[in-house]
Each structure stands twice: as structure tokens, then as C-alpha cells.
């Protein structure tokens, strides 16, 4: 039985805080839910907080990149925040550089990046 991760809405942004070790099915569910929620709330940003995740395997790493691509198609920027040093080292050793995924040290910085994007968007409009 895999769990569903709660997706929280903050203004124009969606926040997913991962508090458990991820298994494949949970991540697939997350991908479904997130795509739906982005459309439903017409979100402009998605933050995935993996501060609590101690293990990120190659599948989860790839899924993070996939989620980012999906969100971008739906006009939402994805920021992965709070990756642990050990996790970063593992991903690099696995040869995953998560190209196309923006990252930030912590939630605050992640929100700052999304704010920057919103500002750029407003300037364009």
C-alpha cells in the first residue's frame, strides 16, 4: 500500500514536503496528483522539499526531472529544495545531474526563486 503525499497550496505555488522514504509507486502517484493540481489551481510554481529524504535512488531522481518537465509544460516552474549532501553525492555517483530542475538550499531560497520568476513574468506581461 503506497501512500499519497499531501500537496499544499500557497498562493500561486504548490508545496510538496516529502517526509518519508520514497518508493516508486508513491512517486508515480505524486506525478499524477501534481499534474492535476497544477492545472486545477493554475499554479505558477512547484516546490518539492526533500529535506527529510535520506535515500533518493535513480528512479526517484529521474522522476523528479520528469515532474519538472511536466510542470514546465503546464507553465509552472519546479524547484527542488533541501537536498542533503549524502543524497547529492549519491545522485552524482549515479550519473544524474537533474538537468532542467532548479534547486535551492532551503524552502526560503526556493520561494525566493519562484518570486523572482513571478516578477519576471509580471515584467513581461
Amino acid at each position: 500500500m503506497s501512500e499519497r503525499l499531501p500537496i499544499l497550496r500557497i498562493g500561486e505555488n504548490l508545496l510538496v514536503s516529502i517526509q518519508i522514504d520514497l518508493d516508486d509507486q508513491t512517486v508515480l502517484n505524486l506525478q499524477d496528483d501534481l499534474a492535476e493540481q497544477v492545472v486545477k489551481h493554475s499554479a505558477r510554481g512547484v516546490i518539492i522539499d526533500i529535506t527529510a529524504a535520506e535515500i533518493v535512488d535513480s528512479f526517484v531522481g529521474r522522476m523528479l526531472a520528469t515532474i519538472a518537465s511536466i510542470s514546465r509544460l503546464l507553465d509552472a516552474e519546479t524547484v527542488v529544495v533541501g537536498m542533503r549532501p549524502a543524497v547529492a553525492i549519491t545522485l552524482v555517483e549515479l550519473g544524474l545531474s537533474l538537468g532542467g530542475v532548479r534547486t535551492a538550499l532551503n524552502l526560503e531560497r526556493g520561494l525566493a526563486i519562484l518570486a523572482e520568476h513571478a516578477a519576471a513574468r509580471a515584467a513581461q506581461a
Binding site: 543524497v87 547529492a88 552524482v92 538550499l105
Partner: peptide
């Protein structure tokens, strides 16, 4: 290069 990529993954 690995160190730089790992730092980038963490958002630095």
C-alpha cells in the same frame, strides 16, 4: 566536476 554538480543539486 562531481563536487560542483553535487553542490548544484543542493541549490548552490
Amino acid at each position: 566536476l562531481k563536487t560542483v554538480v553535487a553542490a548544484r543539486l543542493m541549490g548552490a
